[in-house]
């Protein structure tokens, strides 16, 4: 009976949480649309150049639907967006969805590599710092975490290039892959495409190009995960059940690895999910430093030349990913931590 209640509660919570995404997404689309079409300066003279005539600008606005009432513009944009049509770029005339699609795998590849690095090293450093509390290891872990949140990621990228490319000549300073080795486009993720092709040289090239930007991008998240893991581990290690486990004579490695770590990971999971979302923001800067051909660099370029449909499309896409990842993180958290379900019940 109780079991069924909690399943029903869980389902109710999931549905409630998923439904909450809809108004947030509509709100984001309105905010971005208003920013781009109401508050931004008229793009016509920028796109057509200063010498454009009044008539040619009128014609251009009409062709891009900018002469219609703003509400109508929004609803036709929303209707299009729901079908995957995000409009066309003012400059290339290519559908925005296609432009983004061509660059998106590069950003995802970078963000995934960064979050993997951040997760592994963040948890490792955090656990070591907690287990060896108040020793040199703890101090070192805290120091690395502090540097990670204080160094601007673009400067970190520059320092990496100076050292690994300039001094050691070990890693390439920019780009995604050696152009000559580029594998055939299947997934758009070069490392996977290279594997599909069975091309070892391409895989290696993609990997060495990925290392520096992924480290630079992941450093901030690693610092956050380290701090979270440390404090969460310290809390778990102080619990009664750990004392009980130790008293029963279970080996220290098992106490830490199995009992303490598992419980500490509940809040850490959420933080990792949230960090993945914010990595997409950081990618903007990292991609700029490493000439990484993803959406980050594309966004900045598009903003600089007022290519609003592109900017709108990217912001919406990133918001969708951000919200989805947060949603998944919340659901995982709720699944792992039964107290959340009680809270939602009490509220609802």
């Amino acid at each position: 009976m109780r079991e069924r209640d909690s399943v029903a509660d869980m389902l109710k919570y999931v549905v409630k949480r998923v439904l909450m995404v809809i108004p947030v997404m509509i709100g984001v689309s309105i905010i971005v649309f208003a920013l781009m079409r109401v508050f931004s300066p008229d793009p016509a003279p920028i796109v057509l150049g200063q010498h454009a005539t009044q008539e040619s600008m009128e014609a251009w606005r009409e062709a891009n639907g900018l002469d219609e009432p703003i509400a109508q513009q929004y609803f036709s944009y929303l209707a299009g967006a729901l079908k995957g049509d995000l409009g066309v770029s003012y400059y290339t005339k290519t559908p925005v969805a296609k432009e983004i699609g061509a660059r998106f795998p590069a950003t995802i590849e970078l963000a995934v590599a960064a979050i993997i690095f951040a997760t592994i090293f963040g948890i490792l450093l955090g656990v070591i710092a907690a287990v060896k509390k108040n020793t040199i290891f703890d101090a070192l872990g805290s120091f690395i975490a502090l540097i990670g949140v204080s160094v601007p990621i673009f400067w970190l990228g520059i320092l990496f290039i100076m050292f690994f490319s300039g001094v050691l000549h070990l890693l390439p300073s920019g780009g995604r892959i050696d152009v000559l080795l580029k594998p055939a486009d299947v997934t758009g993720f070069y490392m996977i495409d290279a594997l599909i092709e069975g091309n070892g040289a391409a895989f290696r090239s993609a990997l060495v190009h990925l290392i520096q930007p992924a480290l630079a991008l992941g450093m901030y998240s690693m610092a956050i995960i380290t701090r979270m893991t440390r404090s969460s581990m310290l809390e778990s290690l102080g619990q009664d059940y750990i004392r009980t486990a130790r008293a029963k004579g279970i080996s220290e490695a098992k106490v830490i690895g199995k009992h303490a770590l598992r419980n500490s990971m509940i809040p850490v999971t959420t933080v990792i999910g949230l960090q993945f979302g914010s990595l997409l923001g950081g990618a903007l800067l990292t991609e700029s430093v490493f000439s990484w051909p993803g959406i980050g660099k594309f966004t900045v370029d598009s903003i600089l030349k007022s290519d609003f449909p592109v900017v709108q499309g990217i912001v919406l896409l990133v918001a969708v990913i951000f919200v989805t990842v947060n949603l998944v993180a919340d659901l995982v958290y709720a699944y792992l931590d039964p107290r959340i379900k009680y809270a939602s019940k009490r509220e609802g």
Binding site: G27, G281, F322
Partner: peptide, 24 residues
């Protein structure tokens, strides 16, 4: 708080540069 949620669903640096596009 829902409006705050909307603002938080876009990474802050991306939101900031989008605002810059509008503001100049």
């Amino acid at each position: 708080m829902r409006v705050m949620d909307m603002m938080l669903s876009v990474p802050s640096i991306l939101l900031a540069i989008t605002l810059m596009a509008a503001l100049g």
